[in-house]
Amino acid sequence: MMDPAIVVDKVVKRYVVKSGVFRRRTSVVEALKGISFTVDRGEVHALLGPNGAGKTTTVKILATLLLPDSGDAYILGHSVTKEADTVRKLVGVVLDVSRGFYPYLTGYENLMFYALLRGLSRREAKARVREVLELVGLRDAANRSYLSYSMGMRARLSIAKVLIDDPEVLLLDEPTLGLDVHSARFVRSLILDLAKRGKTILVTGHNMFEIEQIASKITVINRGQVVASDSPQSLREKIGLVHRVEINVHALERSDVEPLLTAISSRLKLEKSSVETIAENQYRIVLYVAGSREYISSNVFDVLRTYGIKVLDVKIIEPTLEDLYLALVR
């Protein structure tokens, strides 16, 4: 098995905040309290947590832009504290999509600056910049001033900047923050596209719908500590969030449905159940069940087969990532 692309090992970070007229008063904010997690190669890994949880601090430490107080982190086996120069060549970081560019230069010129800074020759830089602009769909707007760019275009340019290096690991801090639906969708598909090309991507965010679409694994941090780290499905099972099961059946009387409900409740531990009338001779059994999807489906279908009742529809609705997130950081 390959080593993980990112290893965060017991990282502690404290900020000393100075206040008062002469800045003599100091207080310590513990941003990270010894967090540890790993990100496998080629994985889109989401770092979730409420505001102030320590997500951006973690990203900055991984990008070598911030030094941890203790602990260490490794990118493709290289320490971010001891081999910062090597790590910088391996990672691309997007910290704030609306920052990091010269407003009076065009998108093309801004990227040329970074390409030359990276050490590409002028010819190589021109070719690479055109390539990444094409990739993020900004070719037509390349010669427009950065000032005239919309937020969505700025986000794309931020990703283009990162891609100049063709880094193996991408660190994206809330890349769709403040973007309209169209731009956010474009960025999401870009992230998935990059993952298909073998990039390891660590992305932070608040939009659960979005994270659910792109991330194969999530780490939830709260108040500087890792609360959970696994795939969304495994986390759901571990936490045992309740599934909502809807069974639509055809029956002459409501009382015909009751034995079915009793049979199911004898096999599954129901948190709550009810029967609703949805049309003439059509009823919906609603069950709230704790357990894995497989466990629920096998038991429900076993009972349905035994009873021989006419089933119109069966839905097993999984708890959303949002439910999961709220359960973890509550």
Binding site: G100, Y102, L117
Partner: peptide, 12 residues
């Protein structure tokens, strides 16, 4: 203002 330094320090 522009906060480009964090990007620049990636390279130098």
């Amino acid at each position: 203002v522009h906060e480009v330094l964090y990007s620049v320090l990636k390279y130098t």
